[in-house]
Design a binder for these strands. Structure first.
Length: 849
RNA sequence: GCCCGGGUGGCGGAAUUGGCAGACGCGUCGGUCUCAAAAACCGAUGGCCGAAAGGCCGUGCGGGUUCGAUCCCCGCCCCGGGCACCA
């Protein structure tokens, strides 16, 4: 009696065997091509959820498949273990964040092991281990040496719920915190930054070097970096009497060709000159109203562009360098201090915001770039001086056109990146009043956090020597464990930590008490995996050169900017430091979709969480892994459905029975009998064809992440095997062929259902070594091809019949066969055949009139 | 508002990108086995008309190109995501 498929009796058994055999431990091996397969660094929240199951199952299939294809595969796992949830949980449950974190890591690692993922656990890292984070501090010091660390005061994003600052990338959607979704506010604070903007151009340019990334992700990064080409223009500031001074205010503009249409000038409410220019004047009160209103605006209102435009005249003027005109300086909330210089030349005819502002405050709107098809052009085409002070338009025009009322530039083409734009900039450059310039939307990365559970920033504030790095030989700065987190203490409340001596003068000094953004920990972990136990260096050059870059990275789309941009930045700096030859960390990126329930994201608060553990308990890890991959293509969102899991369990059971019954043989006889005596009948030929076709299809599908269709193809092969068994007479069954199909199916399913495949391979089919070390089955396209094909015959585009012809039938043979088909004849009877379209091997279309 | 995705049976999804729409699975219905049930196995399953043969309709909607369109083009509608006062 054949043993039934029982995942519970085999899964944990094989997990233990694999571990003791060291099946997934790898080392550098020059004789095989390497492949580095990596899933995004998990935060150890303790519970694994379906998103994890999906993410790590995708990676595991790719890793196991690659091994079977002959590659030396690095597939590591570790824990992104610093972060706020640990602190919040600790406060709530009166434990230490470390206790909570390490317990969660153990729990989650056990769940991952229970899923049967093929990780090299010897390389595991935990970012809260001092052996790990000391290298984060070392990186900080190296960045500092290279001038990539800066401490400066500026308006920053503050999350009131997390009680800490956030980097720009970490404010998402309508101005909310990426982690807790609270509305973020602005505060002026002195903070630590990594100067990622130094790499803005390279981060943008090298997106082109990533053909293996989704277009969507690259577009999002390009938009985030936000490169604009234009010019800086210097405007001389006039004194209170209206006389030009030597002080200039510089603006950035993408449209220097519209400079002749500049009729006012704007400063951001936060601009330092605002107070200086208006203090003690009659304009101060009105200006203050705008400044105060802007300060009250939430990030949401400000970012949405829906806030009402407010403005106030400062009483001062600047001189337009192209025509010497004095234009009034206003303050307005629609000018952002963070972008460009915080000052703007307003050209109302060419910019919708300036247009609206001008209409609101009665400022003139002279046209300077007019579209070719605009009737207004005839009125002003030849005018070099301003003859028309206001446009009859309902809105601004920012497209290409002809420059008018623009002095010597009149008649030139204007618009973005136009000859007029270049001519005006060159004119300014020749006079020292402007220059070509490129502006990025990307801001420097704010990395300091006012929280405890993170990597301490290795710096010292000395009253005598100023700000100093902790010397390299004094690393690591160990995070003290005796902080009372339940009282809300941070390092700043901990004198034993912050009281120190200056590394330079030896006097009393204060240690920096901010910790680093957790995104710094996840920006280099993939390098550490290459050489995880190295105690002398972040990683050895040889190990990194062998493994890096990551060949296949898998994770959620939510990191399209955040983690993926930071990691690209770190890798580029590492390359410039000579640590690695990789300039990009992740060659191929797969962004997997979300796992939902009834169209909604699973969450405890909604009470719709499906626990993977419950599913494993019922159907085993193999069915769960295979099913989540079968449900949908990996990059699409999917809606959880338990009935389908049941179906996958049934398929595995069918496959099990097929292999097991065959191995035991009919009536207990050994199935490995000589099948050569059996006649190669049509049924056997069909099964051989299917075997080759399916191996080819599964191979191709996995390479393109078509896990769902790969599984369908395996089901088709099993169905074909069943049909063969029923069709072939018992005495003529080709048992050798059936045995081959059974082995092929076991090999094909191995990456998806590794435990079942292993049990079948070793204990049922009787092989001595692991299925996961077997070479991937080969296939012969010639044997996959049928010698006869069914060709569809259409009459006027409608299918009217089918004919079976040799696969290599000529067009003439096809024509003849098509016209002879009885049903086709009915439809062509008495009508003229005007044309016949023949697609060999596929279709014939008879066009009749 | 702008930029990407996407819309296919009762459901998840296929269709080698211009060549049999609906593979595979779920669900449903019918059958075999059984005292019965479960499991397993077999069969049917887009809609409408028809006893059947067969016919008509059908990939969000409306046009177009083509011998032929889920696929390409034009114009809409809906869903999801990203960006959004960036000068």
């Amino acid at each position: 009696m054949t043993r039934a498929y029982d995942p519970h009796s085999i899964e944990e058994k094989w997990q233990a065997v694999w571990e003791s055999e060291g099946l997934y431990s790898v080392s550098e091996d020059a004789s095989r091509p390497k492949k580095y397969v990596l899933e995004m660094f998990p935060y150890p929240s303790g519970d694994i959820h379906m998103g994890h199951v999906r993410n790590y199952s995708i990676g595991d299939v790719i890793a196991r498949f690659s091994t079977m294809r002959g590659m030396n595969v690095l597939h590591p796992i570790g824990w992104d273990a610093f972060g706020l949830p640990a602190e919040n949980a600790a406060i709530k449950s009166n434990t230490h964040p470390a206790t909570w974190t390490y317990a969660n890591i153990d729990k989650q690692a056990a769940s991952f092991k229970r899923m049967g993922f093929s990780y090299d656990w010897d390389r595991t890292v935990k970012s809260c281990d001092v052996d790990y984070y000391r290298w984060g501090q070392w990186i900080f010091l190296k960045f500092w040496e290279r001038g990539l660390v800066e401490r400066k005061s500026s308006p920053v994003n503050w999350c009131p719920s997390c009680a800490t600052v956030l980097a720009n990338e970490q404010v998402i959607g309508e101005g909310v915190c990426w982690r807790c979704k609270s509305v973020v506010t602005k505060r002026e604070l002195e903070q630590w930054y990594f100067k990622i903007t130094e790499y803005a151009q390279e981060l943008l340019d090298d997106l082109d070097a990533l053909p293996g990334w989704p277009e969507r992700v690259k577009t999002m990064q390009a938009n985030w970096i936000g490169r604009s080409e234009g010019a800086e223009v210097d405007f001389a500031l006039c004194d209170e009497a209206g006389e030009p001074t030597d002080t200039t205010i510089t603006v950035f503009t993408t449209r220097p060709d519209t400079l002749f249409g500049c009729t006012f000038f704007l400063l951001a409410p936060e601009h330092p000159l605002v107070h200086e220019l208006t203090h003690g004047t009659v304009y101060a009160a009105d200006v203050q109203k705008v400044v105060a209103a802007a300060a009250r605006e939430t990030a949401v209102e400000r970012a949405s562009g829906e806030a009402e435009k407010l403005g106030a005249f400062t009483g001062r003027y600047v001189v337009n360098p192209v025509n010497g005109e004095k234009v009034p300086v206003w303050v307005s909330n629609y000018v952002l201090m963070e972008y460009g210089t915080g000052a703007v030349m307003a050209v109302p005819c060419g910019d919708q915001r300036d247009f609206e502002f001008a209409r609101m405050y009665g400022l003139p709107i002279p046209p300077v770039v007019v579209a070719e098809d605009d009737p207004l052009l005839e009125q002003v085409r030849e005018a070099r001086e301003r003859v028309l002070a206001d446009v009859p338009w309902a809105e601004a025009y920012d497209g290409p056109g002809v420059m008018v009322q623009s002095g010597e530039f009149t008649g030139m083409p204007g618009g973005k990146a136009s000859t007029g734009m270049r001519a005006v900039t060159e004119w300014l450059e020749a006079r020292g009043q402007g220059r070509f310039s490129i502006n990025f939307r990307l801001r420097d990365w704010l990395i300091s956090r006012q929280r405890y559970w993170g990597n301490p920033i290795p710096a010292v504030h000395c009253p005598a020597c100023g700000l100093l790095p902790v010397p390299e030989d004094q690393l690591p700065v160990v995070l003290p464990m005796d902080v009372d987190i339940t009282k809300g203490e941070t390092l700043a409340d901990h004198p034993e930590f912050y009281e120190t001596t200056c590394p330079k003068c030896g006097g009393a000094a204060r240690r920096e008490t901010d910790t680093m953004d957790t995104f710094t920990c996840s920006s280099w972990y993939y390098f550490r995996y290459c050489d995880a136990r190295n105690s002398d260096a972040l990683f050895g050059r040889d190990a990194a050169d062998y493994w890096m870059p990551v060949d296949q990275y898998i994770g959620g789309i939510e990191h399209a900017i955040l983690h993926l941009l930071y990691s690209r930045f770190f890798t580029k700096v590492f390359a410039d430091m000579g640590l690695t030859s990789a300039r990009e960390p992740f060659t191929n990126l797969l962004t997997q979709g979300m796992v939902k329930k009834d169209g909604e994201t699973m969450s405890k608060s909604k009470g719709n969480v499906v626990a993977p553990e419950d599913m494993i308990a019922r159907y085993g890890a193999d069915a769960l892994r295979a099913f989540i991959l079968f449900m949908a293509p990996p990059d699409k969102d999917l809606d959880w459905n338990q009935d389908g899991l049941e179906g996958m369990f049934r398929f595995l059971g069918r496959l099990w029975r097929y292999v097991a019954e065959l191995a035991e043989g009919p009536d207990g006889a050994n199935a490995a009998s000589d099948g050569a005596s059996a006649l190669p009948d049509e049924a056997a030929k069909a099964l051989v064809r299917e075997r080759h076709r399916v191996v080819g299809k599964v191979t191709d599908d996995v390479e393109h992440f078509g896990f769902n269709t790969a599984l369908s193809a395996m089901m088709e092969l099993l169905n074909a095997a069943g049909e063969y068994r029923r069709a072939a007479s018992p005495e003529l069954r080709d048992l050798a062929l059936e045995r081959e199909v059974a082995e092929v199916l076991t090999l094909l399913i191995a990456p998806y259902a590794p435990h079942m495949a292993e049990e079948l391979w070793r204990n049922v089919l009787g092989h001595a070594t692991s299925v996961h070390r077997e070479p991937w089955p080969t296939w012969d396209p010639a044997q996959a091809a049928a010698d006869e094909v069914e060709v569809v015959v259409q009459v006027n585009g409608k299918v009217r019949g089918r004919v079976v012809v040799p696969a290599d039938a000529s067009e003439d043979v096809l024509r003849e066969a098509a016209l002879a088909e009885p049903h086709v004849r009915e439809h062509t009877e008495g009508r003229t055949v005007r044309k016949m379209v023949v697609v060999p091997g596929k279709l014939v279309n008879v066009v009749v009139g």
